[in-house]
Simulated scan of single mutants.
Amino acid sequence: MTTPRDLLIIAIDMASNRPLERGDLSLALAGAEAIDLLSAEAVRLDGDDMVPSLPPAMADRLLDEAASSLVRDAPYESVGDWLWRRGRGLAAAYVADLESEGQLTRQRGRRWMPSRTSRTVLVDSPARRRAVDRWTSDEPVLAALAAAVGIRDEQGADSPSVADDAVATVLAAVNDAVSELEFERQRRALDEAAFDNIWRGG
Rank of each mutant, 00 (worst) to 15 (best):
G23N: 14
G23A: 15
G23R: 13
D24S: 15
D24Y: 00
L25C: 01
S26G: 11
L27I: 14
A28D: 02
A28S: 03
A28V: 09
A28I: 01
A28Y: 00
L29K: 10
L29C: 04
L29W: 01
L29H: 06
L29F: 12
L29P: 05
A30L: 05
G31I: 01
G31L: 01
A32K: 04
A32P: 06
A32V: 00
E33L: 10
E33Q: 13
E33M: 02
E33R: 14
E33T: 03
A34C: 01
A34R: 01
A34Y: 03
A34M: 10
A34N: 01
I35A: 07
I35W: 10
L37R: 00
L37E: 08
L38Q: 07
L38M: 06
L38P: 07
L38T: 10
L38V: 10
S39Q: 12
S39T: 12
S39M: 03
S39A: 15
S39V: 10
S39G: 15
S39N: 13
A40T: 07
A40S: 14
A40L: 03
E41K: 15
E41V: 11
E41G: 07
E41R: 14
E41P: 00
E41D: 12
E41A: 06
A42M: 06
A42T: 04
V43P: 02
V43S: 02
V43L: 15
V43K: 01
R44G: 10
R44P: 05
R44M: 06
R44I: 06
L45Y: 12
L45G: 02
D46N: 11
D46H: 11
D46K: 13
D46G: 06
G47C: 07
G47F: 01
G47R: 09
D48H: 10
D48Q: 13
D48P: 00
D48A: 06
D48E: 02
D48T: 13
D49V: 09
M50I: 14
M50W: 04
M50V: 11
M50R: 04
M50C: 12
V51I: 14
V51H: 09
V51F: 02
V51S: 07
P52N: 11
P52V: 09
P52G: 08
P52Y: 01
P52H: 08
P52R: 05
S53H: 12
S53A: 13
S53P: 00
L54S: 14
L54T: 14
L54P: 04
L54Y: 09
P55C: 12
P55S: 14
P56F: 04
P56T: 09
P56Y: 11
P56E: 07
P56M: 09
P56I: 11
A57Q: 15
A57E: 14
A57M: 10
A57F: 12
M58L: 15
M58C: 15
M58S: 13
M58D: 09
M58N: 04
M58K: 00
A59G: 15
D60L: 11
D60E: 15
D60C: 05
R61Q: 13
R61E: 15
R61G: 07
L62G: 03
L62E: 11
L62W: 00
L62K: 13
